[in-house]
Each structure stands twice: as C-alpha cells, then as structure tokens.
Simulated scan of single mutants.
Amino acid sequence: MSDDLKRDGNAFRAEDEADLVALLGSRLCHDLVSPLGAIHNGLELIELSGSTSGDEMALIRQSLDAALARIAFFRLAFGSAARDAVIPQRDLRAAISAMYRESRTEVIWRDEEDRPRSEIRLACLALLCVETAIPWGAKIEVTRNPNAWVFHVDAKRLKIEPALWQALGRGAVLADLTGAQVQFGILARACRALRRPVSVSADETHLSLLV
C-alpha cells in the first residue's frame, strides 16, 4: 500500500457511521436525474417544434439507454443478494458494457465464470468505488483469483481521497460520507460481514484493489 493509504486510525462506533440508506437514496436520485432530465428536455423540444427530428430522437434514445444501464447496474451493486442466486457472466458483461459505453473508461472483464450474486455485488460496488478515482477516464482490468476480485486501474491521472480508501481497507464506514461515496460504506460493511480483507495500493496513475 502506498504511503498515502497506509495511515490507520480508530474505527468508528456503529452510532458514528453514516446513514447508508439515506445516502443510497441520494445517490440513486442524483445519478438518475441527469439522463431522465435529458429525456424530459428532448420531449419538450418535440412538443415545441411539433415534429420529431433525428437529433431530438437521438438525444432521447441516448439518455434513456444511459438511465436504463445505470438502473441495471445499480440493481446488481445495491440490490439484495440472495444466497443461491447466480449471475451469468454474459449478463454481467452486458450490464458493464452498457454502463460504460458513453464514458471515457474501458472495463476489461477477464473473469469467465458465472458467479453468485453476492460476489457480483462486491465486484460492482468495487467498480463504483474505483469510479471516484477516475473522473477523467481510465482502463480497468478485472480478474478473479481463488480468494478475491482484483482490479488494476491505469489512468493518465487519478483522484485519490485517502480517507475513503483507508476506511475501506479497515472495513470501517466513515461518518461523513456523501451520497456519491455511499458505495464505500456499503462495500466496507459487506466485506466486514463476510470477513473479506481489502487491499489497496495507489500512486498518481495506477490503482490496485483486491476485494
């Protein structure tokens, strides 16, 4: 782990942890407002013009696809994970492809196995954590070893907030999380419940995460 991420601290008490349910609601609303708002604007343009142009329909289609992709991915990341549910890898690849199609990020999914939904949930939460570090885009390679998901991130520049990653490594939920950071709290709590250690290392252009 890099020097920036090695610093440890006292674990928070349960009553000091963030309200993850409320933060999740904020996160879902924030991420879906933009594409749904674009759909609304496209429909308004159609109503005002009295006709349907290719540009207007393209805007609506792109925004609707983005909203549906986000909802499908959020269902995997934030939805309940039944013990015996299994996600086919083709379905997961389709969800990831749709999620990042219009972004500057490329996700290379190396795992070929169908996995329990509980495992896919961890991987999707980890991807959302990685997203916070790559606002300018990146290449993310995801593999699976016998014990953990492994994420290797290469970018021209990373935005690392050490406190988030330090808490994740300890399985702690910070008290001052925002809605955009709720995935860190949920992943930390899930890993703590499963007794899954988390390992993080990062520098200015590379990040490695084991979950």
Rank of each mutant, 00 (worst) to 15 (best):
D8A: 14
S97L: 14
L187C: 06
M57W: 07
P197C: 13
G54H: 08
A69M: 01
L28E: 12
D111N: 05
E47S: 07
S201Q: 11
S199A: 08
A148H: 15
S49V: 03
P162A: 13
L20F: 08
R83P: 06
S49T: 10
D8Y: 15
Q62F: 03
E204K: 01
A14K: 05
I60V: 10
R101V: 09
R90W: 09
R157P: 09
R90M: 10
H40G: 00
M99P: 00
D91V: 02
R157K: 11
M57T: 06
V153H: 15
L64G: 07
C129K: 02
I134V: 10
L32V: 00
H30Q: 09
F74S: 15
A155C: 07
E17S: 05
A172G: 03
A123H: 07
D16P: 01
I71H: 13
A175F: 13
G171K: 06
G37C: 00
A95W: 11
D91W: 08
I96S: 09
Q181N: 03
R144D: 01
G169V: 02
H152P: 01
A175Q: 11
R83M: 11
I120Y: 09
A193K: 06
A85Y: 02
G185W: 09
A14L: 14
C191V: 00
F78H: 10
R192M: 07
L43C: 04
L5R: 01
S26F: 13
R7G: 10
V21T: 11
D3I: 15
A98G: 11
R115L: 10
I46M: 05
G37P: 01
R157L: 07
A38H: 11
D8E: 15
V182P: 00
V200P: 00
C29D: 15
S201P: 04
F151Y: 12
I140E: 01
E112M: 09
D84F: 12
K139D: 08
E47A: 09
V107C: 13
R195V: 09
G169R: 07
R157G: 02
L43M: 12
A38T: 03
A180L: 07
E119N: 08
G9L: 10
S103A: 14
A72S: 13
V86K: 10
D8C: 11
S26I: 04
A69R: 00
V86L: 13
Q89T: 02
F12K: 15
A77Q: 04
E131T: 01
G179E: 03
T143A: 02
P162V: 10
S26H: 13
E17L: 06
S63L: 01
D8G: 12
A148S: 12
I108C: 13
I87P: 01
F73Y: 09
N145E: 08
A98P: 01
N147R: 11
L127M: 14
L174V: 05
R13G: 13
